[in-house]
Structures are given as C-alpha cells and as structure tokens.
Measured scan of single mutants.
Amino acid sequence: DHDVVPEDKFQETLHLKEKEGCPQAFHALLSWLLTQDSTAILDFWRVLFKDYNLERYGRLQPILDSFPKDVDLSQPRKGRKPPAVPKALVPPPRLPTKRKASEEARAAAPAALTPRGTASPGSQLKAKPPKKPESSAEQQRLPLGNGIQTMSASVQRAVAMSSGDVPGARGAVEGILIQQVFESGGSKKCIQVGGEFYTPSKFEDSGSGKNKARSSSGPKPLVRAKGAQGAAPGGGEARLGQQGSVPAPLALPSDPQLHQKNEDECAVCRDGGELICCDGCPRAFHLACLSPPLREIPSGTWRCSSCLQATVQEVQPRAEEPRPQEPPVETPLPPGLRSAGEEVRGPPGEPLAGMDTTLVYKHLPAPPSAAPLPGLDSSALHPLLCVGPEGQQNLAPGARCGVCGDGTDVLRCTHCAAAFHWRCHFPAGTSRPGTGLRCRSCSGDVTPAPVEGVLAPSPARLAPGPAKDDTASHEPALHRDDLESLLSEHTFDGILQWAIQSMARPAAPFPS
C-alpha cells in the first residue's frame, strides 16, 4: 500500500487522527484517494484483494465477484509491481515495509483507509498491559489484515481490525468495519463480527460495544468508541475503539438485554438511515425525530424517553415518601432524547437536551391539597369587569335574561352582576328603583315568574340570613337542586349567576 499512500500523506493522516480522531482521518484520506487517478484506485483494489485478505475476510469475495470481468485485479505471486511496468521484474528490497512494521508496532494501528489505518492507538496503548502477550500477537497480524480498504464507483468500504477477539475476553470487541457502500446513491455502514460483515439490516451488537450512531460526518466517531472515555459513568459499556482492553462492566443492572439487537429503522417514522440506538431497549431513532430533536450524538450512555420514564417511576415512589426537613431528592440522569409524543421536562434553567451534561430531575413533595375552585371561562368573567365610571356595571355583549332568554333592554344586578328583565323577575308590577337594581334572587323575592315553557326556580334557592346585616342577608345558599333548576333554563347567565354566588365573597367592612 506504500505505492498507493505516500509517506507524507501517511504522516498527515496520523497527525489528523491524533488531533480530530479516526473518523475524520478516514474521511480525509478517502476524499484524497478519490481525487487520484484511476491507476492509484486500481492499485488500491489490488492491494485489498490479496489472497491473505480474501482468506481472512470471507465477505470480500462477493465484492470481488461483483467487479466487471474485464477488470484485472489479480496479484502476481513473485511480488508487487506497478501496473504500468511491462516487465515482470522483482521490485527492489522494500524498506517501507520495515517502516510500516515499526510504526504500526509503535502506534498499534494508524488512522488511514489502508491496512495502516483504523484502530485507535492511544486507547490501545492505555489498555494494553493486562493483555500484552495476546495483543502483541495481534499486532503482528495487523499489517496483514488490519485495514481492508475498498473503493469503487459501486462499493466503497473501509475495514478496521481490532485485537478484541482475544480468547477469554468477556464481551470482547470482535472488530470495527467502517463501511461506506455507495449503492444507488445511498450510504450504509456496517460492522465486522468474527470475520463476517453485518449491514444495518442485520447488524449484531457484538459483546459490549454497539453501533451508536451510523454517521460518517462530524467530529463524533462512527461508533461511540473513545478509548479514553473507558466505561460509562454508571458502569455503562465498553467502547469499540478500545482495542485489546480488559473486560469492562457491560450494562447497567436495569438493562433488559446485554447482547440485544437494535432495530435498523426509526421507532417514530419507521424509516432507515442514520440512527441513534438506545442503551436500554432495542429501539433506534433519527436525531430529527426525537422531541426535542438533537443536533449531535450525546457522549456516554444514552437512553430513550421510555427508558428514562421507567427509571424515574422506579425512583419516584421512594422520593415521595414523607421525609421531614430533607432537601428534594435529586436523581442524576443521562441526557435523554425524547421520541415524538413523549416529553420529560427538567427543571427550568437546565441546558437543552443533547448537550454533554447531566440533567437533574428533582422530585419535590406534593403540595397540600386544596379545595378545587369553580372553573370559569374568561368570557364568563367579562360582565364582572365591565364597570362604568360611576361604579355601575355596563352590559356585556350577548347578555340575556335568565328567565325569558331575551337580551333586549336587559338590566344588570348590582349584587350578582346577572342580566335580567324587571318585568320577568317582578311581574307583579313592583316599581323599579332608580339605583341599586337587584334581581329577584338578590332582592329576596322568590315568586316564580309566569313564563310559559320555563321551569320556575326551586323555592330553596334563597336562604336569607339575619336582617340586621343587609349585605350578609342576601347571601344565597345554592344546592344541587338549585343548579339543576338553573340548568333547565338553558341560559348561560343562569349558570354564571350560580357560579358567582357559589364563590365566597369577603364580608362587608363594618362602618367606622
């Protein structure tokens, strides 16, 4: 592969990997390779389809078979030569091979799209000592099968071997295949498990690692696999990028399955594409389908809103127990993405979901129960707010008499603000006073009005108090039968009158 990737590009890729991570280095090298001529790309395919690569990765054979028959990708048995050289000459001794072996032994695996480039050397060096003999053996194999790289107009793939297949390693990572398949204008990513390549439709969760975000852009890794992070704060999961590491605690105790298979379609829109997988259930989501939507993949363990709600429900009964003089119970939860139609709101002032922060849900004790107040519409209280300059209440639009249902020339009671006709409430011909108009209920007259088809109010509507207090003497005590009587009149003013009279009014101040 030294004929494909020059030394300066190799060093530039290593520097970019240390600065921005393996995914960015892979993407940059792939983009550079696509700008080369067809001879360089053909050399790339020839390096990929060597015999030892085909033996190690069985899924490469179907890719090789898909090439046109007129494309010669065979390799000479006596060494490598550029395709432009007409004579089959043995190339001179390859010093770059020693360079590659020494550099890969030092860096474990470079971040390139060629056999030198995919593992994360920093994480491997940190986690190597417990498994040094086995990992050293794996390093000797890295130059042979560490990076199976493929690129063409139909298929483009980048393979990364790992030393996680050490025997006896619980939940060992089998390997990473960062794979971009450009077929019919689409893009897919796969993962390699035990020599087999699994596409998103049959993606397997190998051991402790999972394909957290099938994305090839942005600074985030394709698999949430930063070796420096180790395990999740809650004892979460091992990262795919942690090559040759000792077994780590796999999943939280509440995880239903340690080796679950995540779905390959969004649980909201039932469509495929780039998904984020939940650590607590097999569901996966688009970032845009979450509520609120996320802009980037959160670091650490992530769970959907259903799993978060289940966790909150487990903690909430203990938080609601009476604990005198104790601060509110704080339950730190990872930043969760909410699927459509589901929402768990945190306290005000918290950062938005999706940031690399930890939301704190506070379970406050329930407030003391209070008697429910009568629910009145805002339009129902409008007549009470229509007060004239002299303190006389004006008529609201649409006000109707509670007896006849007519809204023409209605009066407004100064005591309960109900609309009424003087002739309907006082049919006996009582003279109307000039000021202080009161309806039949507030004036103490319980004589029913002779209106055909309208039920008369119940005599129990009024329960006047002592006459010594004029204001308190007109406080009506309405009961269920009074409400039914008012409802039978089918008037809004009657219902409003009952609601206003049912509310307690402050006692009249004593004259000074």
Rank of each mutant, 00 (worst) to 15 (best):
E320Q: 12
A251Q: 14
G300R: 11
P282E: 07
A251W: 12
D356Q: 01
L333Q: 08
A371D: 07
P368K: 15
V410W: 03
G388D: 15
L258I: 08
G436T: 06
G375K: 12
C386I: 06
D481H: 05
P292W: 09
A418S: 04
D409N: 09
V246Q: 00
R438L: 07
H259G: 11
S379R: 11
A380N: 04
G465E: 11
R295C: 09
A267H: 08
I495H: 00
P476Y: 11
Q501L: 03
D493T: 01
L376D: 13
P249I: 14
L437H: 05
M355W: 15
A284Q: 00
L252K: 06
E274N: 14
G465C: 13
N262L: 12
A267I: 11
C277K: 06
H363Y: 14
T331S: 06
V360Q: 00
H286R: 10
S458E: 11
K468R: 11
L455A: 13
H421E: 02
S443H: 05
A399P: 04
P466K: 07
V446Y: 08
R318V: 07
D255I: 14
S512P: 05
A417S: 08
L487C: 04
A251P: 08
Q313F: 07
L486T: 03
I495T: 02
S443V: 08
L287W: 06
D271C: 13
R438H: 10
G402D: 01
M503W: 04
C424H: 07
P335G: 11
V454T: 15
A508G: 08
A460G: 12
R270Y: 07
P365H: 13
D470C: 08
D264N: 03
A418K: 08
E390P: 07
G336I: 12
S378W: 14
C413M: 00
P247S: 11
P249N: 00
G436Q: 07
G453L: 10
D377S: 13
L275G: 07
Q393N: 13
T435M: 12
P367V: 07
S369R: 10
K261F: 04
F285G: 14
S291L: 11
Q243R: 07
E343D: 03
S378K: 12
T311E: 06
Q497E: 03
S502I: 03
K468D: 04
P334K: 10
E390R: 04
D481K: 01
G465W: 15
P247H: 10
P383W: 15
C278M: 15
E484L: 02
A418G: 06
P328E: 09
K468T: 10
P347K: 09
A460W: 10
L437W: 14
P247F: 15
E452C: 13
P249Y: 12
P457Q: 04
P509D: 05
H474R: 07
G388T: 04
A366Y: 01
S458H: 14
H259P: 08
D482Y: 04
L487H: 03
S512Y: 14
C442D: 01
P374D: 15
C404M: 01
R440F: 10
P298V: 13
G272E: 07
A467I: 11
P351S: 04
P433C: 15
R480G: 01
P383H: 01
Q393L: 11
W302F: 07
A472E: 06
L395H: 15
H382I: 05
C401N: 03
P324R: 11
H259K: 10
A371L: 13
E343K: 12
D356W: 02
